[in-house]
């Protein structure tokens, strides 16, 4: 009992800290625009292995995220490093984290086209090849760019991370999972030399892209599969509904993100729960039950004017 209270406290404080780091960036956005829509975003998440997981900014275990802005665009993204690389002595979090950090840098340097989020992912991926330090591994990724002057959101998604947009309490847009086969998503990879043939590697150009206009008050959830595999969509939508109109109250918004992450975390370790992941497994002829323990990243954003 004591143990669990201790954990809860620690997790919440961590969630709060992560949230707070993002209030500041949201506040900056407030200053820069007056008429055009912009994003207010918060983040929360947990590494699968909390005891030993990373606590660096921008990472939850092997997941990574970023949220940044250029003069006329807000850009957010998540990536989920593929854990299988651990067996090869490769840190799976490194690839995803470099991928996201490079995206962030490209945006800040203005080296991206607002109309092509897929191109941003591709550029970031090719930039990894330019590092002196060899970066190996693979990752799914989802990047969203809000073009403030046109109120258009453009997204690129590769693999089973994804986004969901709720307007007026209903899902109006969502990404589609890209899988080769069950539990094997599309992924960007840089395999160790010699393993090229045995490793799934999808070209960054194969990212699924989409484009839609956004309205003030839209709630956008960008998350890794740790969330979508464990929390059923109706529950996610119910939570996101609570976030509507919280653009000015980032603390409350943070609370919603925390609760989604916390829910995903709890469900993922629930052994007798019929999770979306388990349902999908059954459809593929695998007799499974329970959540899917995974790193969890929740990036929750509201379109504000």
């Amino acid at each position: 009992m004591m143990q669990s209270i201790f954990w809860t406290g620690r997790l919440l404080s961590r969630a709060l800290r992560n949230g707070l780091s993002n209030f500041s960036s949201a506040a900056e956005l407030n200053v820069s625009t007056t008429k055009h829509p912009y994003l207010v975003s918060v983040v929360c998440g947990f590494p699968k292995d909390i005891a030993n997981g990373r606590t660096r900014k921008g990472q939850f275990g092997d997941d990574a995220w970023f949220s940044t802005n250029s003069s006329n665009a807000d850009v957010i993204g998540v990536a989920d490093g593929v854990g299988g690389w651990r067996a090869y002595g490769i840190d799976p979090g490194e690839f995803s984290s470099y991928l996201m950090r490079t995206c962030e840098r490209l945006v800040q340097m203005g080296h991206f086209k607002m109309t092509e989020p897929g191109d941003l992912l591709a550029k970031s991926y090719y930039e990894l090849l330019e590092h002196k330090k060899p970066i190996l591994g693979s990752s799914t990724a989802c990047v969203m760019i809000l073009d403030r002057s046109e109120s258009v959101m453009r997204a690129a998604n590769i693999g089973d991370s994804g986004y969901m947009v709720v307007r007026g309490g209903r899902v109006v847009h969502r990404s589609h999972e890209q899988q080769h086969y069950f539990n094997t998503p599309y992924q960007l990879s840089l395999p160790p030399p010699g393993h090229d043939r045995n490793v799934l590697s999808d070209r960054p150009e194969s990212a699924e892209t989409s484009e839609f206009t956004v309205e003030c008050g839209d709630v956008i959830l960008v998350a890794t599969d740790g969330v979508f595999d464990n929390v059923p969509e109706p529950v996610l939508v119910a939570e996101m509904r609570r976030a509507q109109g919280l653009a000015g109250e980032t603390k409350k918004l943070q609370a919603v993100a925390n609760s989604i992450a916390w829910m995903a975390r709890n469900l993922s370790f629930d052994g007798c729960y019929m999770s979306p992941f388990a349902k999908s497994a059954r459809q593929n002829g695998i007799d499974a039950i329970g959540g899917k323990p995974d790193d969890i990243t929740v990036l929750l954003a509201i379109v504000a004017l």
């Binding site: 005891a51 997981g53 840190d91």
Partner: peptide, 22 residues
């Protein structure tokens, strides 16, 4: 032998290679 000094590129926590919580 070139290097990167800051913590963002320190070697991963040795424990991550043997995750205890599965």
């Amino acid at each position: 032998r070139s290097f990167q000094s800051a913590n963002l590129n320190t070697a991963p926590n040795p424990l991550f290679l043997a995750p205890s919580l599965e």
